[in-house]
Design a protein around this nucleic acid. Structure first.
Lengths: 126, 126
DNA sequence: CCGAATCCAAATCGATACTG
DNA sequence: CAGTATCGATTTGGATTCGG
C-alpha cells in the first residue's frame, strides 16, 4: 500500500485490513504480548493479563490458533496443564506490536493531555 | 514494558493498553491511513475507504480529534468543505501502523493458509 | 486446572431519513 | 456537502454454572 489514488477504495484487498481484522479487539494484542517471552499456561495468562475472563481468553486463543499464530500444547498430567506458545509465524507479529507499544509509551501522555483538554462531546454542528 | 513478571497484571498502567484502546476497532487504522498523505475531505474519505457509513466515519474522526491525532478544518465556502488532517502527534502514529501493514503484506498469505487448513471450529474439549 | 454452555448487558455498526 | 437522529441487527464481553 505504498500509495493509493482517490477513487480506489483500498478496501478488501488491502493488507491493512487483514492485520486490523486480526488484532482489532480488546484483548488480542495483550494476549500476544503475554506469550511473547515463552510458553504460558491458561491460568497464568488470566493472572498476568488481569481483567480478562476465561471465556474470552479461550475465544481469543482459539482464534489465534486458527490463524496459525499460537500453538496449544496439552500436557497429560494430574492437574491438567495446557500451555500456549507463539508459532514462528506468531512470533513475527511481536515486532509490529512492540513498535506500537513503543509509540504508546512515548506519546501516551500527549494523548491523555489532549483528551483532558477536550472533554466536551466536541460538536461541530455549526 | 521491557519485561514483566508473573503476578504483575500489566493491566491499566501498560502503554500497550492505551494504544490498543485507541485503534482496536474496525475503522480507526484505515481512517488514519487515509489521512497519511495529506488533508482529505469527509466525502473523499467515504469514497477512499469504501464501505464505511458517514455516521461511523464522523464518530471515528471525532474520537481521533478528541485524542489529538486529527485536526478538523471547516472552510466557509459555497458547497460546504470540511477537511481533516493528521496533527503532528497523529503523524507519529503512521510509522507503527505502517510496520503493522508491512507485516500483513509479508505474512498475510501464511495466515490465510492457516485459516484454510483449520476451518473446523477447533474444539479442545478432549 | 481448563474449558464449554448458557444467559445477559453493552458497545458497535449500518441503513435510512432529516437538517443546515 | 457535512452532520445528526433514530432504529435495529449484529457483535462483543462478562457472570455464572457445569463437566472432564
Amino acid at each position: 500500500m505504498s500509495g493509493f489514488r482517490p477513487g480506489d477504495p483500498f478496501l478488501a484487498d488491502c493488507p491493512a485490513r487483514l492485520a486490523v481484522d486480526l488484532i482489532a479487539d480488546k484483548w488480542t494484542v495483550v494476549v500476544l504480548y503475554g506469550l511473547s517471552e515463552g510458553p504460558v499456561r491458561h491460568g497464568e495468562l488470566i493472572g498476568l493479563i488481569g481483567g480478562i475472563s476465561r471465556k474470552v481468553l479461550t475465544q481469543t486463543l482459539r482464534r489465534l490458533e486458527a490463524h496459525g499464530l499460537v500453538r496449544r500444547h496439552a500436557r497429560a498430567e494430574a492437574p491438567r496443564r495446557v500451555e500456549y506458545e507463539l508459532t514462528p509465524l506468531g512470533a513475527t507479529l511481536i515486532d509490529p506490536i512492540h513498535t506500537l507499544t513503543e509509540w504508546a509509551r512515548a506519546n501516551g501522555d500527549a494523548v491523555l493531555d489532549a483528551l483532558d483538554a477536550a472533554p466536551e462531546p466536541v460538536a461541530h454542528g455549526d
